[in-house]
């Protein structure tokens, strides 16, 4: 069982806190899914921050602050330092965005920020692609968790590059990995867990569902199903049919 910087998660589901129709819906989604990690951010204080802080603290889950919206290593590093003090955790979901339309990570800025933050004692959860070379560099920098995307953030497309994700999973068997971003349906979550990922992180697919708490529960069940499948030795797919009912003993009619 791979851990997350020494922490074992109760469930393999991490849930974002944004875009919910109401705070009550958000809390209900955490309760119904049993999500073990909540992602949060830091924004300019306009009056609502204190109440939100009290609410997320009350969820009783691990908090994973992000550096969402940062487009340079410098911005991301400063945001991470502020988040560490505010949220009282050295966990940081490191996002350094390289393109405004795809929200694709900037691999160069990401690595630069990861090196600086790991050296400064942060436990970095880098939002990355399935690129194996970048992954190796992030691990060299000190990252013990990787968060490859399934598809662009908020797209709901699922796992865009199964081959790349499978290769990444196989290349670093000791590193905890979370499929972050792009999940749209519970079947995507099951697929990620079947591939051997350790957790999923999602937000929009739950928050923008008609019934967020029920959708959150559906994702949690799918993630659990995928994890059970992974550990129970799936059969190997074949090209030809193989009868499941024995042929021997069939009547001659």
């Amino acid at each position: 069982m791979r851990d997350f910087y020494g922490e074992t998660l109760q469930t393999p589901m991490m849930l974002g806190t944004a875009r919910f129709p109401s705070p009550t819906m958000m809390e209900a989604a955490f309760r119904s899914s049993g999500a073990s990690v909540a992602t949060v951010s830091l924004r300019r204080e306009r009056g609502a921050g204190q109440a939100f802080w009290e609410m997320v603290r009350g969820l009783g889950v691990h908090l994973l602050p992000n550096t969402a919206g940062c487009h340079s290593a410098r911005e991301a590093i400063t945001t991470a330092q502020m988040a560490r003090e505010y949220f009282g955790t050295d966990w940081i979901k490191l996002e350094v965005i390289g393109h405004a339309d795809t929200l694709q990570p900037d691999p160069f800025g990401l690595l630069e920020a990861a090196e600086a933050l790991c050296a400064d004692g942060f436990k970095v959860f880098p939002y990355t692609t399935e690129d194996q070379v970048l992954a190796a560099r992030l691990i060299d920098a000190g990252c013990r968790v990787l968060m490859p995307w399934g598809a662009p953030i908020g797209s709901g497309m699922g796992l865009n590059n199964i081959h790349g994700l499978r290769t990444l999973r196989a290349a670093f068997p000791d590193v905890a990995m979370v499929v972050d971003a792009g999940l749209g349906l519970p079947s995507h979550a099951a697929q990620a867990m079947e591939l051997g990922f350790d957790a999923i992180l999602l937000n929009t697919a739950v928050a923008e569902a008609e019934d967020p708490p029920t959708m959150a529960r559906a994702f949690a069940l799918a993630a659990e199903a995928g994890a059970l499948a992974r550990t129970s030795g799936p059969m190997i797919a074949r090209d030809m049919a193989v009868p499941s009912t024995p042929v021997i003993g069939k009547a001659w009619l």
Partner: peptide
């Protein structure tokens, strides 16, 4: 000066 606080995030 930037003064930041907790906010929803994904």
């Amino acid at each position: 000066l930037e003064v930041l606080t907790a906010m929803q995030g994904g």
